[in-house]
Computed example of a mutant assay.
Amino acid sequence: MTNKQLVEGGCAGCGVKLQTTANDKPGYIPDSALEREPAICQRCFRIKNYNDATTVTIDQDDFIKLLGGIANTESLVVHIVDIFDFEGSLISGLQRFVGNNPVLLVVNKIDLLPKGVNLNRLRNWVQKQAKTQGLRILDVVLCSAKRNMGFERVIEALGEHRGKRDVYVVGATNVGKSTLINRLIHDFSDLERELTTSRYPGTTLDAVHIPLDDGHDIIDTPGIVYAHRMTEVVPRDVLQALLPDKPIKQLVYQLNEQQTLFIGALARFDFIEGARQSFSLYISNALPVHRTKLERADELYADHKGVMLAPPKAEQLDEIPAWTRHRLTIRRGTDTDIYISGLGWIHVNSGDGALVDIHAPKGIRVLLRDALI
């Protein structure tokens, strides 16, 4: 294969078209690396070897155009979502992008949930939430691609529903698409390659076609970037603490009204009004939580943000949008989560009802939902 052919092809790691002229643009590959087999861009090389992803800009309109083209194909659509950030990783309006093509919902990262979670209840919860979002699905499969949990069922579901069709894999950034596809390559294809995987959002930059043994393809699409997720607005080195990599251990706090919890300097929970009750936090174990009285909360934040209240560090605070307040009323007799996209959720353990405030970076999705656990 000539150098020219390599440049005209796509990166074997992220799918972006290769080019040798602009090192600050997607697909850059140095001349000295053109004979590398497989050919991967400099960004993928740095992710694989140094866990370092340079920032590149991909036009979001191109992502939407790529998704919109699926409706004109005859395919099985595999929509991968992250159970830790379910509402934030679900593609809104997916139905209009995929047309009449069937959708298999693969719920990844179930290994992050506390041990002992009832999987049948979890599957029913997912089906109900998907229906609420207007998504018509063939089936729900629970798995962890990283830990090889439930992957046999993913393979079975593809076999049951694919027929003689291509498979489009879609999802938001950082839901584990490429990790799961690398498992599919191993099971369905003789291709000796792997997609680039990392903890950084947006690792896949263009559609990557993986030929299957029966002449059809698995097509990995770029992750949709949703600014309403905490993972998209924090500095890169904060992702290490924000994204859990092992089962979450719930943190339970017995609170009186007029008490506050700080989750680093990423979010703040104020218990404004209600009977004494407990709240369970389901967040990364690497994030510190500090409790104080509501009357002292503003002063504590002003004096200790970025130091005791971290991450992020003091010098990074300006990189994150300023907090905005969300006032939420938890109705008596309900089993409710307070969900903060990309950060986790707070379960209200009592059915007594409560009035709470959530302070989170502006634009981050905050909502009430039926309890996951």
Rank of each mutant, 00 (worst) to 15 (best):
P235C: 06
L184R: 07
F151V: 12
R153T: 08
A33K: 13
L243H: 02
D370G: 08
D82M: 11
S89F: 01
D139N: 14
G176F: 00
A297F: 03
N174H: 07
T196W: 00
I320N: 05
F63H: 15
Q42K: 07
Q95S: 15
T334L: 09
F86T: 11
M308R: 14
E37C: 02
N182M: 01
R268W: 03
F262T: 06
E74I: 10
R183D: 00
I272P: 00
D166R: 02
T20L: 02
G344D: 05
V56F: 12
R46W: 08
T55F: 03
G9T: 11
S178T: 10
I40V: 11
P211Y: 07
Q259K: 14
R121V: 00
Q258E: 13
L343F: 02
N148A: 14
S92K: 15
E35H: 12
V225E: 15
P30H: 03
A71I: 14
L251K: 15
V167M: 03
T292M: 10
I181W: 01
S350N: 13
N101T: 06
K17I: 02
M308P: 00
H209S: 15
L113C: 08
P244N: 12
A371L: 01
I91S: 04
K177F: 01
I340P: 06
V208F: 06
E156K: 11
H290W: 15
V117W: 02
K17W: 02
G163Q: 01
A172R: 07
P38V: 05
G15Y: 06
Q5I: 11
A322M: 03
F279R: 00
D31S: 08
G333W: 05
E299K: 13
A227F: 11
G134W: 12
K305E: 14
G134N: 09
Q277S: 12
M149S: 07
V81C: 09
V78D: 08
G344K: 10
D335Q: 11
A360R: 10
C14M: 03
D187K: 13
S278Y: 04
D139R: 10
L309W: 05
A227P: 04
H228L: 04
I70N: 03
V106L: 12
G264H: 02
I91P: 01
I185T: 05
H326I: 14
Q258W: 07
P30Q: 06
N3H: 14
R268H: 03
I29C: 00
R331D: 04
F86Y: 10
N182H: 01
G274R: 05
Q133M: 13
Q250C: 13
F271Y: 15
I283R: 04
G13Q: 05
N174A: 14
Q42A: 12
E152F: 01
M230V: 09
